[in-house]
Write a protein that binds this DNA or RNA. Structure first.
Lengths: 159, 159
DNA sequence: CGTTATTTGTTTCCTAGTAGACAAAATTAA
DNA sequence: TTAATTTTGTCTACTAGGAAACAAATAACG
């Protein structure tokens, strides 16, 4: 398990104009912050953000196909294949090949997986809170809204 | 050179409530979008976002120490060491050990490096434009402001 | 029907990036 | 000054993740 490190103190006396102009860089730093808080808060749970997201999505969509998870979470199929097999091996999810399309694999949580993700998600509000610590509640809401719009996740009515 | 792939079409009929609530996930997706556009627009330049950011920061701060670049850009020292040596080998930057602190290394652009980053940065506005395509100009500005605040990059007056 | 094209998941190989140990230099403490 | 601590960059080993090739199944097309 390779957790990225904590947050370094910023350096003084460095001109950062170009950085402030780069949305890509700002997004990367924000994401590092977010993941850092994730690992801090969920240190005892021994899980990574990607795995938690997969479990949560499977919980929300029982029987979802592996490829659909892959596309939704922007995780490459190769990587998803590894992750899913690991999580099956550790008893968190079940894989089922449906007879109507024997190429695909349906994913479901095992009771252990359901308990696991339920426990894990209890920590999410704390992670979110720390991540947006420097923003006002209104700013945090707005940031979320803008990211959702940017990612094209707007329509969520079962879509 | 391992460029991450393009943008997949989203999947239909999947419930994504939990995803929309996860700032970390939204940041990740936004960053993937941003990097994807970077690789599309700068396909012919054969450079990665991290390298471009390093060159840009060194351009803005000639003689900056390697560790300062590392901390500012949140790139681990080990990785920075590799990158810097590569860029030195390809003639983009020069490394100099100052006599007053012989542990450290000062970085400067070579004329080739300066020309390179100048050429590269001409593409940045197009990358930014594509990244925030779905946002209004005002929303894009606000997103940038919020990310800067979140990252603690607010004070930039030479700081 | 049979043939070709596409989709789905897997496997193999490779690159980017991290952790941890290290050496050298500089700083602090005794 | 000497000794202990910290800082700085590098090196080695390991992990996460991507690209490309692949096999099996399905869909599209003649």
């Amino acid at each position: 398990m390779n957790q990225p490190g904590g947050i370094d103190k910023p350096e003084e006396g460095i001109s950062k104009e170009s950085l402030r102009g780069s949305l890509g860089f700002l997004l990367r730093v924000a994401q590092l912050r977010s993941f850092s808080h994730f690992f801090t808060v969920l240190a005892d749970e021994n899980i990574r953000p990607g795995e938690a997201t997969v479990l949560d999505l499977v919980r929300e969509n029982p029987g979802i196909r592996q490829g659909a998870v892959s596309k939704t979470l922007k995780i490459k199929r190769a990587q998803m294949s590894k992750m899913v097999r690991e999580m099956e091996a550790s008893g968190l999810i079940s894989r089922r090949v449906p007879p109507e399309d024997r190429r695909s694999v349906e994913l479901r949580l095992t009771p252990e997986g359901a308990a696991r993700i339920a426990q894990i998600t209890t920590h999410f509000p704390e992670v979110e809170k720390r991540t947006v610590k420097r923003l006002t509640p209104g700013e945090a809401r707005e940031l979320r809204r803008l990211l959702i719009k940017m990612a094209g996740f707007e329509e969520s009515k079962g879509e």
